[in-house]
Amino acid sequence: MPVTLLVTAGAVRQAAEGPSCYSRLRNEWVCGDYLVDRREEILSALGSHVVLSVSSVLLGLLLAVPLALLARRVPRLETAITAAATGLYTIPSLALFPLLVPFTGLTATTVVLGLALYALTILVRALLDGLRAVPPEVREAARGLGYAPTRRLLRVELPLALPVLMAGIRVATVSTVALTTVGALVSHGGLGDLLVTGVAESFRAQVLTAAVLCVALAVLLDGLLVLLQRALTPWSRA
């Protein structure tokens, strides 16, 4: 009897404090109280998601540039590099992280390294396509004007390859943001960590919030990249 009384008292107190939309009894998808109460947890997951995704794409880009330039210089390497990139892309992300763990452990490095490898496969191809799209007569003209190879690359070829490269960076960024969630396997998945605990506790508000934030982040970064491309290629607007 006392137990029942206690439970009733608890329910009454809860009712008096106003209904919370997340509890053992109520499990609503959209819940303002959740956003307020767990604000710090949500923001820190979002923050680490941004850091993981952005540093992965940057690292991928950093590795893709020398690889693409090398592939362009040595045609035999180009087939090898594109074949390796295709092979790598077929390896599931959930399988790639375990393969890295013996070397880098259960750290954020594992996630960034794995995601950078995926971004790399997209970026190398975009860079090669972009450089190939530079008209030969433009290259010839630059040579005729006395541009040395490095200067020609930086001043003529890379700017002209930029639209194709930026398209590749956009694809890589959007897919990296989505793929970061899988990092939850090594407990460094940003919003993916919220998804895993949300599913384990069947916590709907948390699952939906993490999913929506993930898509919103991808859309936001994509939009920023479009703005960046406009700023970098003022001639294309004329």
Partner: peptide, 19 residues
């Protein structure tokens, strides 16, 4: 295709399982 890329399959799966 662009929409499909932006929606993490894991998030979709999590929503379906929690529903």
């Amino acid at each position: 295709s662009a929409v499909g890329r932006a929606v993490p399959t894991f998030a979709l799966l999590a929503i379906l399982v929690a529903a």
